[in-house]
Simulated scan of single mutants.
Amino acid sequence: MLTGSIVALVTPFTSQGNVDFAFLEALVNWHVEQGTDAIVAMGTTGESATMSHDEHVMVVSAITELAAGRIAVIAGNGSNSTSEAVHLTERMSHLPLAGFLNVNPYYNKPSQCGLMAHYRACCEASDLPQLLYNVPSRTGADLLPEQIAELATLPNIVGIKEATGDISRVAQLRELCGDDFILLSGDDPTGCDFMLQGGRGVISVTANVMPALMKRMVTAALAGEADTAHNYDQQMATIHAAMFVQANPIPVKWALSLMGKLQPHYRLPMTEPELAQQHHIEQTLKQAGLI
């Protein structure tokens, strides 16, 4: 349940800034229909950084209810504050989750000792499996393979979402952490090659707008069918690029609004894309046949 085509799900909002549960339900049902293997709820793409703890837990709980066992749900539980990460983990541990996605503590730049203590505290807060999440472009700190290998010795740490885009890390992590450690790509442009090198899935932004094609690409890559996987990936290449013309999730929410999947509302400090980027996203979706 922690492998395959996993969507980093957006959180729809109303014009008043509240969670739009009608659109959220439609998105969950769409991903079930399109064959997505799992949903990450309240990750970076879900705008977790701008949500209160009560809202965070409410959205994750709602997604598990909407999923109703039809699709696995992974909950973001990370924070730059260990006490907050532990609190979120404890509050969600009773939910029917496949596991947690725990981002490297951002801004603080903790020492190796601090990292171990942080993740140990999160592991002690729940028996559910936890995935590390390495995204130095957002956190300001890179979890190096040697650090990841040490963290992998902690109870419940079963894998990592690796979002550096460095394909060479697949072999390094496989050697250091063993075959059972789950390696997931968190970088859409390199996700296909990541899996062909030994990764076991993706946690994808692009899957928000092209879930069926992403599932086909992941299936082919995991089967070692390189030509087929690269063909599917090439069909998504312009979407991969368009989804990062500004900070995630600004472009993907704008794309989904053009597709009629939600309204283009964000939580400050996130705002809608600039006009030139709006036009670029629209043209890319048209060329891909999505609108």
Rank of each mutant, 00 (worst) to 15 (best):
G224V: 08
K161P: 11
A276V: 00
D180P: 12
H230V: 07
E25W: 12
S15I: 08
H56Y: 12
I39C: 01
A171G: 14
S52M: 02
R138V: 14
G17E: 06
A8M: 04
H240P: 05
S126M: 10
M210N: 04
G78Y: 09
Y133K: 13
A237E: 12
E175W: 10
V73A: 12
I203H: 02
A212F: 11
L27T: 00
M270T: 13
S257W: 00
G178S: 04
L176H: 00
P12Y: 10
S5V: 07
G260T: 04
M42I: 03
T82C: 14
I157G: 01
L66Q: 11
T139C: 10
G46D: 01
A212K: 14
C177L: 00
G99E: 05
S137T: 15
I6Q: 09
F100L: 00
I157R: 00
L143P: 08
Q277E: 11
T284I: 11
Y119N: 03
D142W: 14
G178L: 04
A62Y: 09
L128M: 08
Y119A: 02
L66H: 12
N18R: 15
M259G: 03
Y133M: 12
P145L: 04
E65M: 10
G289S: 07
L275M: 12
W254L: 03
E175I: 10
E175G: 11
V202I: 13
G260N: 02
V32P: 07
T64I: 09
A22R: 14
V103T: 02
Y232A: 07
N18V: 13
V170R: 08
V28G: 07
G43Y: 00
L213H: 11
A255L: 06
Y106P: 10
A242K: 02
L258F: 05
G43R: 08
T45E: 02
T284C: 11
F23H: 15
I239E: 03
I281A: 02
H53I: 12
I39L: 11
K215C: 09
Q277N: 15
A68N: 14
V40Q: 01
A141M: 15
L144R: 14
R138L: 13
R267P: 01
T228W: 09
